[in-house]
Write a protein that binds this DNA or RNA. Structure first.
Length: 801
RNA sequence: GCUGCUGUGGCGAAAUUGGCAGACGCAAGAGACUUAAAAUCUCUCGGUGGAUACACCGUACCGGUUCAAGUCCGGUCAGCAGCACCA
């Protein structure tokens, strides 16, 4: 046997697959289709991370297996290449982001190829290429035409370091997602996509798809649907109504004050009529200074100021109620104002205690002198609601009363907000809209797409939150497509999430010049059968892309309502210190190093063998060696090959068991146990002193999805042909069990003996054999068996005393 | 604070979903081969006692259900993740 020179063998097979187009997916093939999708990478300058390898390895294994099972598999890859790090490199070095991107993509491509992933390289997409972002802009314009794009001046999340407006999703926890600086609030005109219009459908759609339960749950929480009521409170001093949203209309009799958000428009409207406007202005200025983080996290104490000159009237009791301004009420949720029921809401309770406001109990069951009671109970002090004992009935009743008086109705609210859809950055898709002094906002005509990024001298954004594009007169100045007069282009670009919201559609038909993809191709491939990626993308990327997809479905551009039939997520690879890998900690593992030292097959095996695929696991250099040893033992099997075209009796059971376990475990992401079973098989083969041709052939096929290079090489050398053309192997369930099995004999649940009985023996037979065993006889001596439990092929338990 | 998940050897983990706890791998120890080391091969490897057979204990902690609990139920503690004044 020759030496195992993995780098030669691996590059030989990578070239073979490339030249033969082994992994090309065929549109419209008669074979059953399987569309496996992994999250395309952002091509950063640092190259790939072992985390990428783990993320792609699962569906890589599934894809290779499915091809051997006769499927037409689409397993594509691409690059989500717009984004800040590339632009920041450009700012630092002056190199054009296009060039930076191209270099990074080249680097990623070579790394991916070295690992031997079976991607269809003829379908690569790059979100920054003209014939791709043309269609991103096209979708945006379709949304614009359908009223899903709007402009609004609101307080936005602004990162002072990146000088950019961020969506809520990009500024979770009050920190910028990219540079982790504190986010501040800033008034700005921004573009929004009306994703809230799809909130209910995004929620309902979850019932029709096969996502892991925790993924569904996170999406549900993100959408955050609540049901309740809108109630209008008349203002005593003015001909005006204050509209509020509440989930507890049943507590309406317990309202003792109202609260408006500091930004509530009614404050400005009645500026002249409010007696203490100075105090209010001072308070509001203080709130505006606070970052979102301070406002929601640090401040435990309730603050606020009463509005003097405006009083609300409880629509049910006619009682006058004071109104406060307080920053514990947010303008962005509900109506920006609430009715406060301190007896039954913990926040209102704190506020009332601090400001000495009345607390009126309307639900019995708690002790409101100590804390708010949020549970269920009998209604009291509540007029017509008195005596009702459950929340549901009380709400039903109060809604009827409100409807009769015309001052309120049932309603739903979502936590999810509309999607702030622009960045003041260069390296993104230009927003194809024009500001015309006569016609207003006008869409760039479809024929003019793509609207290209112009060259700029300086990629640095303006300090006032303006895009670098604003400085390019030749880009900004244009003619209005409607009236032909002088107009100005929108200079903001789209956020990074735009291109990734539809990339899986382009894969189906990546070179189509006339549509984002042909309907035929989409009908053939959609939905994506299995999508794997990180947990960090299940609320943002996945909700955005589901939203776009549903919109495209509504306008007839795609054939399915939901894009992804199934979604799973891999766990992180931690550094060997158990911490998250990061450059600053110096615990990052470069996949190239592993490939250099041990080969791609070892890397692939290790990332799947290291633990539960869905859980985080620390990297261990020495454990990688275990996989290396396994691969070496596979290579060494070539010296032990004997003739034989069927499994030898001594290993027949373990062969069938292994086929079954590997076949099943791959489908349920249990790669670690699939590999363990193959190791067990190899150990047993070594113990028999050899392996015959039939056994070797089967073993190579089972191992091929994990370690395709070494298995392809041995397969060829043994004269079995080209492994990627082979068929997956079958098992016989009847042969997965030995003819004799060991069972445990227990006395009252304690193990007393182990006996061999024929496989599938009935209870009488098992008892007969057990009774003949001296240890069993000893254990049962002098005892009366009152009951016996027999589990076939497992155990026999005597209950005796 | 709310929601969800997880707690098993020195380490990464298995356990057909209530039926032999610790498969497989790493690390460690002993032996073989070697001038030697590496590599490879063989054996040991949860704890306590015992020379061995073996016995007892053991899946975060306390309690319960059951012939039988890592698995189910109730409570406690710890860790992780997501959301976070959502009215």
């Amino acid at each position: 046997m020759q030496e195992y020179r993995f780098s030669e063998i691996e590059s030989k097979w990578q070239h073979y697959w490339d030249e033969h187009g082994t992994f090309r997916a065929e549109n419209g093939s008669k074979k059953p289709k399987f569309y496996a999708l992994v999250e395309f990478p952002y091509p950063s300058g640092h190259g790939m991370h072992v985390g990428h390898i783990k993320a792609y390895s699962s569906l890589e294994v599934v894809s290779r297996k499915r091809r051997l099972q006769g499927y037409n598999v689409l397993f594509p890859i691409g690059f989500d290449a717009y984004g800040l790090p590339t632009e920041n490199t450009a700012i630092k070095t002056g190199v054009h982001p296009r060039q930076v991107t191209d270099e990074n993509i080249k680097k990623f491509t070579s790394q991916l190829k070295r690992v031997g992933f079976s991607f269809d390289w003829s379908r690569v997409v790059d979100t920054t290429e003209e014939d791709y972002y043309k269609w991103t802009q096209w979708i945006f314009l379709q949304m614009f035409e359908h009223g899903l794009v709007f402009r609004d001046k609101t307080s936005v999340n602004y990162c002072p370091s990146c000088k950019v407006v961020l969506s809520n999703e990009d500024s979770q926890g009050g920190k910028c997602d990219v540079c982790h600086s504190e986010i501040v609030q800033k008034e700005k005109e921004v573009w929004y996509l009306r994703i809230t219009e799809y909130a209910d459908r995004l929620l309902q759609g979850l019932e029709t798809v096969d996502y892991l339960p925790n993924i569904k749950l996170q999406q549900q929480n993100w959408i955050g649907k609540s049901t309740g009521a809108f109630v209008n409170f008349k203002i005593a001093e003015q001909d005006e109504e204050l509209r509020i949203y509440t989930t507890r209309p049943d507590t309406l009799y317990g309202v003792t004050f109202m609260v408006m958000a500091p930004e509530h428009p009614m404050i400005e409207k009645y500026r002249a009529q409010i007696a203490n406007m100075d105090a209010l202005d001072a308070y509001r200025a203080e709130c505006a200074k606070k970052t979102e983080f301070e406002r929601t996290q640090l401040v435990k104490d309730k603050t606020g100021v009463r509005i003097e000159g405006l009083t609300a009237i409880n629509p049910l009791t006619g009682k006058q109620i004071p109104i406060y301004v307080a920053d514990y009420v947010m303008m962005g949720y509900g109506t920006g104002a609430i009715m406060a029921v301190p007896a039954h809401d913990t926040r209102d309770y704190e506020f009332a205690k601090k400001f000495g406001i009345d607390i009126i109990e309307v639900i019995k069951g708690g002790d409101i002198s100590k804390e708010a009671y949020t549970g269920d109970g009998e209604m009291v002090n509540s007029g017509e609601l008195n005596g009702i004992t459950n929340k549901k009935d009380a709400i039903e009743k109060v809604l009827k009363v409100l409807a009769a008086k015309g001052c309120g109705e049932a309603g739903v609210q979502y936590k999810m907000k509309d999607w702030a859809f622009n960045r003041q950055r260069y390296w993104g898709e230009p927003i194809p809209l024009v500001h015309c002094p006569h016609c207003g906002i006008v869409a760039v005509p479809y024929e003019e797409l793509p609207l290209r990024l112009p060259p700029v001298e300086n990629y640095e954004p303006g300090t006032d939150g303006e895009s670098p594009l604003a400085k390019v007169e030749s880009f900004v100045k244009c003619k209005c497509p409607k009236c032909g007069g002088d107009a100005r282009r929108e200079t903001d670009t789209m956020p990074q999430w735009a291109g990734s919201s539809w990339y899986f559609l382009r894969y189906c038909d990546p070179h189509n010049p006339d549509a984002l993809a042909s309907m035929d191709a989409l009908k053939y491939w959609l939905p994506v059968d299995w999508y794997n990626g990180g947990m960090e993308h299940v609320t943002r990327h996945m909700i955005y892309s589901r939203f776009w997809h549903k919109f495209l479905y509504d306008i007839g551009a795609v054939p399915t309502d939901e894009p992804y039939a199934k979604r799973t997520a891999q766990g992180l690879i931690l550094g060997s210190d158990g911490e998250k890998m990061s450059k600053s900690k110096g615990n990052v593992v470069d996949p190239n190093d592993v490939v250099d030292q041990y080969g791609a097959d070892v890397l692939r095996l290790y990332v799947l063998f290291m633990g539960d695929y869905e859980k985080a696991a620390p990297w261990s250099d020495s454990s990688v060696k275990g996989c290396k040893r396994f691969v070496d033992r596979i290579w060494a099997l070539q010296d032990m090959v004997i003739d034989g075209d069927s499994y030898r009796p001594a290993v027949q059971t373990v062969m069938h068991k292994t086929i079954r376990k590997v076949t099943e475990d791959i489908e349920s992401l249990k790669f670690n146990t699939a590999i363990a079973q193959m190791m067990t098989l190899v150990n047993e083969l070594y113990a028999t002193g050899g392996i015959n041709k039939a056994e070797l052939r089967t073993l190579l096929i089972l191992l091929y999805p994990f370690a395709p290079h070494i298995t392809s090489e041995i397969f060829e050398q043994q004269g079995f042909g080209i492994l990627s053309d082979a068929q997956w192997v079958e098992y016989d369930p009847a042969l997965c069990v030995e003819s004799e099995v060991e069972i445990v004999v227990q006395l009252c649940g304690k193990i007393k003996a182990k006996i061999m009985i024929p496989q599938g023996a009935d209870e009488a037979k098992a008892v007969e054999i057990a009774m003949a065993d001296p240890k069993v006889q000893e254990a049962l001596a002098g005892k009366t068996v009152r009951k016996q439990i027999y589990v076939q092929n497992k155990l026999l338990n005597f209950v005796a005393n």
